[in-house]
């Protein structure tokens, strides 16, 4: 499908998914009620629910999905590996160890956030320091270092889960599977998404070249080492921002770029904005289902991203062959 056709199409899904998210919940609203509550400054329950609860949550889901999808695009270009996702380089592992350790010690929300941020930063610095050699056109060292750090974090996560008791375990599992209910720093996340997304689109020509091979990219005038470092840190910032907002929500970063590619768009100039739009809409949909389907029970959103995404991706893959 032509990107010129796909772009307006995906743009239409944005208000649709956001509208869907705003209408559904423990207090179902009709589109007209949502409209009135958004515009009017009356003081009824609908307005309160919408402005205080639903809108922040839907906006958090959207920006989180956009961040993850964009991070996936950048890492797949950097590592030239179709299996790359925002968590492959150990960033989420570091963040999870930090968050879970804080939870185990009974820390509050702010401390947990700070701790997960510290864990992620340590992982980012460690993987970059150990895995990246400037001037060496071999990205496998970085990839393997990331995978090893991830594995180490995985072991620590299991250890922390074993040490935890009762309610703590549930909180930890929600963090691990993604949870958008305690969203903070929403404006900052939007700023990150817009700035990094815009920069990545501006430099998308270089990403196309880079994805075709590192020597080739160097021969075509791309300063490969600097690009790799830039891509790594851009993806790291996106991932950390998404982790702070919603925990480690799986599958979005891996699946969304592939879905766009399978539809037939591969030039990064289009892939970047389209992935961000689709990632955002998709996560809003998944999150709405996660919090309404068995309400008042709430499920981790990561469960639904996988449940929704797996069949779609499998269908796209089988159609292609």
């Amino acid at each position: 499908m032509s990107p010129r056709l796909l772009f307006p199409l995906l743009l239409c899904t944005v208000p649709m998914s956001i509208g869907f998210g705003l209408m559904n919940g423990s207090l179902p609203l009709t589109p007209i009620e949502v409209w009135h509550a958004l515009l009017g400054n009356n003081d009824d329950t609908a307005t309160t629910v919408l402005w205080q609860l639903r809108l922040p949550r839907v906006l958090a889901a959207f920006v989180c999905g956009g961040l993850l999808a964009l991070s996936g695009v950048l890492l797949q270009a950097l590592l030239r590996n179709p299996l790359a996702d925002p968590y492959i380089l150990g960033i989420s592992g570091g963040a999870a160890v930090g968050a879970l350790a804080a939870m185990l010690l009974g820390a509050g929300l702010a401390t947990t956030q700070l701790s997960s941020f510290t864990g992620a930063s340590l992982a980012i610095v460690a993987v970059f320091g150990l895995g990246f050699r400037h001037g060496e056109r071999n990205i496998y060292r970085l990839l393997l270092t990331g995978v090893v750090v991830s594995a180490g974090c995985g072991a620590l996560i299991s250890l922390l889960l074993t040490l935890a008791q009762g309610e703590e375990v549930k909180g930890m599992l929600f963090w691990l599977m993604g949870d958008l209910s305690r969203s903070q720093g929403l404006p900052f996340a939007w700023l990150v998404l817009l700035v990094v997304g815009l920069c990545a689109t501006v430099f998308s020509g270089g990403l196309d070249v880079l994805a075709g091979g590192l020597d080739k990219a160097a021969a075509l005038g791309v300063a490969v080492g600097r690009w790799q470092a830039g891509l790594y840190f851009a993806a790291a910032v996106l991932t950390v921002t998404a982790l702070q907002l919603g925990g480690s929500i799986g599958f979005v970063g891996l699946m969304i770029p592939h879905a766009i590619r399978l539809i037939g768009v591969s030039a990064h100039r289009w892939l970047i904005p389209l992935s961000a739009l689709l990632g955002g809409s998709f996560l809003v949909l998944a999150d709405t289902l996660a919090r309404t389907l068995w309400s008042p029970l709430q499920f981790p959103v990561g469960v639904f991203t996988a449940l929704l995404g797996v069949p779609v991706l499998l269908w796209l893959l089988s159609r292609r062959s």
Partner: peptide, 19 residues
């Protein structure tokens, strides 16, 4: 070349204009 290019042949050839 050691890379997988995801686009079509024309897009691939066009990369020669990158510099």
């Amino acid at each position: 070349e050691g890379g997988e290019f995801w686009g079509n042949v024309q897009e691939y050839v066009l990369l020669g204009r990158f510099p």
